[in-house]
Amino acid sequence: MRSTLWSLVALAAFALPATAQDVVRVGDAEIRFGGRLHIQYEQGSALDAEPGRVFARRARLKAEVRWGDAFEARLQPDFAGGEPELEDAWVALRPWPALRVSMGQFNRTLEVFELASSNDLPIIERDARVGGGPSCAGIDGVCSLSNLLGELDFVGRDQGLRVEWDLGDGLVVSSTLTNGPGANRADENRAKSLSVRTEFSPRDGLAVGVFYGLHDYLVDAESSDPDTRYAEAIGVDVVAGTWRDGPRFQGGFAWGDNWRAGEDARFRGVHLLGSWYLPLRGEGVFAALEPLLRLGWADGEVGAEGPGRGFVVTPGVAAYVQGRNRVALNLDVVDPTVGAVRWSLKLQSYAVF
């Protein structure tokens, strides 16, 4: 896999300057290259948090290939950790324009907050991570809905089959059937995880989604005969507004099984994100400002006593240079049920190409 990823880097490096155009044609294939480089500075308040540091949050190259309108593929590695790691790797077939069937590695089709690209989201970290901060019941990290869904393997990349069907009149149904363990990991059993999402858009700039996730996991995984069980997640979300065009709101609510905290443990949570894209006049460096506010609450172990709940508040602002290229500042503040309030200041630059 490593040699394949480095071959992609070499191809992009030589092909892009040579063509000076958006599309590279190789035989019957049309190839588009792109990528992103997100550099972050983070400083937290916790005594046991890492000192303020600068690091590559994402460093991705992307190649998208099309053979006409019926066949396409994507390959996207990430080099932020020093060693290449595969993010997207899938091939898709369109038997007819309204239906696309994909095989490979991709995002599970569940909650809209997780499906939105990091290039577009105005907040820096979906899960409001705070170094050295309080942990939610059964998982690592703060008690936020995004963190719960991610740590419980209901969202994120996995390997399997994806079906997307546009039924018309603004109604789209999408589903994934995947291995379960997550990206770049072999399956642990013969069971599969299921995600189903139905989204209705009555008009441009408004979408309402309903989703259901079923995740398979092992009990007593180290034993000679581990038991496979299933956890559920159910929720709704809504988006009003569009990217980089005035006010925009998105929110989600979900509940389900916190299988990492115990067989009978449940979770629930909500997150709300509002932002306003404000174009700037004049000949300055910045084309627009986008203030934002995220509010969240989650309970990792419903009905139990202890540090199972938490509030998240994130004020912030982004200054856009051109398109999606910008510099953003966020302050994630976490207020757990038990323990002191913690905060994390994040500054991130977004280079999108």
Rank of each mutant, 00 (worst) to 15 (best):
C136Q: 11
V173D: 02
V238G: 06
V317W: 06
W259D: 00
A49W: 09
G133Q: 12
G138V: 02
R129V: 12
L214S: 00
V142S: 12
R94T: 06
P97V: 03
V155C: 01
E72P: 04
E199M: 11
A340W: 01
R185A: 15
R25F: 01
A261H: 10
F311Q: 14
Y41M: 09
G133N: 09
E85M: 13
A318Y: 02
L93F: 11
Y217C: 00
E83V: 09
C136G: 15
E85H: 06
P97M: 03
W255Q: 12
D140Y: 14
I123A: 10
L149F: 10
N147P: 01
K346T: 11
D245W: 05
C143H: 12
P336E: 13
T198K: 04
E263T: 04
F113E: 15
A29Q: 11
R36D: 14
E64G: 08
N184V: 13
P77S: 05
N107C: 04
P247Q: 06
W276G: 05
R157Q: 11
L99D: 05
F71S: 07
E87L: 12
D332L: 05
D245K: 09
N184I: 11
A319F: 08
P307W: 06
S135P: 06
P51Y: 04
D127T: 15
A186H: 06
A287N: 08
G308N: 14
G306P: 10
N325C: 09
C143N: 12
H271G: 08
W165F: 12
L329P: 00
R324S: 14
G35H: 03
R190A: 01
D88F: 03
E301R: 15
H271W: 11
R260P: 01
R185Y: 04
V327H: 09
V112P: 06
E232M: 04
G251S: 11
V352Y: 02
F154V: 00
A98T: 05
T337R: 14
A231D: 00
G182C: 03
V334G: 08
A318L: 01
D332F: 10
G205V: 04
L75A: 07
L273R: 13
G131R: 12
K62P: 02
W90P: 00
A288I: 07
V208N: 04
V270E: 10
S3C: 05
E232S: 07
D88W: 01
D204E: 15
M103R: 06
R229P: 00
R36S: 15
R126N: 13
L149S: 07
R342T: 12
V352D: 09
V219T: 06
F79L: 15
D220Y: 07
P291N: 09
V24Q: 08
G303N: 11
S45Q: 02
L295A: 12
Y41E: 08
L278W: 09
R244T: 12
L272Y: 02
R2M: 12
Q76M: 09
G52D: 03
A20G: 14
E72V: 02
G246F: 05
V312G: 10
L61N: 07
T176G: 03
Y350T: 05
A351M: 10
S3F: 04
F106Q: 02
S275A: 15
F311I: 06
I39L: 14
E305G: 13
W276L: 10
A318F: 01
T4E: 14
W297R: 15
A191T: 00
E305F: 02
R100C: 03
A29I: 07
V285W: 14
L218K: 02
T314Q: 08
L99T: 12
A92Y: 01
